[in-house]
């Protein structure tokens, strides 16, 4: 049975200039132990989708329909109070900007310990701080840093602290929303290594949000490609990377530089659509080199090809 089953999820931001459909009819099943990377350009709805899972969509965003079944509970229907038991010990999350994701006025140890106490994982403060020390050590931060304030740490260290805070609660699923975007390349690799190590150690399922398909290809078991709020292709890493079916996935892969420079970089022409007023049919058709008449008329149904599904009229 799936660990997480998202079904026909629709998330809309009701902005002053009209409703923005950030996630459209998204369905996704995630099995225990998977590392699913959701890729797409900015505004593709990938972050909104995971915020939807956490039920932390910033206003004026709202889930308008669909369900998010986690272990037989529909997260979309839970109250704030019930959600608090999910957030942290069941589904943890780390964020894009480690510089601003820690409370600048509190010691990092206290911030980690607070969540442990909140969920009753430990009962007294001292024990919680001991656990926090262990968690810090696990992510490669010396224990004596427990009394440091966030401003005394580098960006990479802060991301490690955030990972420690999330992992200390031993969540079944860890959502990482572009965790390395704000960090330099060397630190990026180290953070990804750390995530991989912790995933193995605690048997976590990871959902990684990234705009970098190369980064996703390195460690994931599965890649989900989103465009204009819709999932357009979803399948095992090797299938997607070696033989992309959707023209958008193809474009994403072609626009990724190759270290040996053997490949010509081609960017996808045009820009992602304005989600307040998306193009009819397949939202990618204005930029698609293989667009046909039918692409302007209807959004394609998913086609199963091997272990993947793709939403494109080319495959019928």
């Amino acid at each position: 049975m799936s660990l997480l089953r998202i079904k026909d999820l629709n998330i809309v931001y009701y902005t002053l200039s009209g409703p923005v459909r950030a996630v459209v009819d998204a369905s996704l099943e995630i099995e225990p132990g998977e590392w699913v990377s959701i890729v797409g350009e900015s505004g593709s709805g990938k972050s909104t989708l995971v915020y939807g899972i956490m039920r932390l969509i910033p206003p004026p965003g709202r889930i308008v329909s669909g369900s998010i079944i986690y272990k037989d509970t529909d997260l979309a229907k839970l109250s704030e109070k019930e959600l608090r038991r999910i957030r942290g010990p069941e589904i943890g999350m780390i964020f894009q900007d480690p510089m601003t994701s820690l409370d600048p006025l509190r010691r990092i140890g206290d911030q980690i310990a607070e969540a442990l106490l909140e969920h009753g994982i430990v009962s007294d403060k001292e024990e919680a701080l001991e656990r926090a020390k262990k968690a810090l050590k696990e992510v490669g931060i010396p224990e004596n840093r427990i009394n440091s304030y966030p401003h005394q740490l580098s960006g990479g260290q802060r991301q490690r602290v955030l990972i420690a805070a999330a992992v200390a609660l031993q969540p079944k699923i860890l959502i990482a929303d572009e965790p390395t975007t704000a960090l330099d390349v060397v630190v990026q690799a180290k953070i990804m290594d750390l995530l991989e190590e912790l995933k193995r150690k605690y048997n976590m399922t990871i959902i990684l949000i990234t705009h970098d398909i190369a980064l996703a290809a390195e460690r994931s078991t599965r890649i989900v490609v989103m465009y204009a709020g819709r999932i357009v292709e979803d399948g095992p890493v090797d299938e997607i990377v070696n033989d992309p079916k959707h023209p958008y996935t193809e474009g994403l892969l072609e626009s990724t530089p190759d270290l040996w420079g053997e490949k010509e970089i081609r960017s996808i022409p045009g820009n992602p659509p304005d989600l307040r007023n998306p193009p009819p049919g397949c939202p990618f058709h204005p930029r698609c080199p293989k667009a046909m008449k039918v692409c302007r008329e209807s959004f394609p149904a998913y086609t199963r090809l091997n272990k993947r599904r793709v939403a494109c009229h080319l495959y019928k």
């Binding site: 964020f95 994701s101 409370d103």
Partner: peptide, 12 residues
Amino acid sequence: DFIRAYKARGIR
């Protein structure tokens, strides 16, 4: 961001 992070850890 850090308020969102607190909420993501289930702090009341």
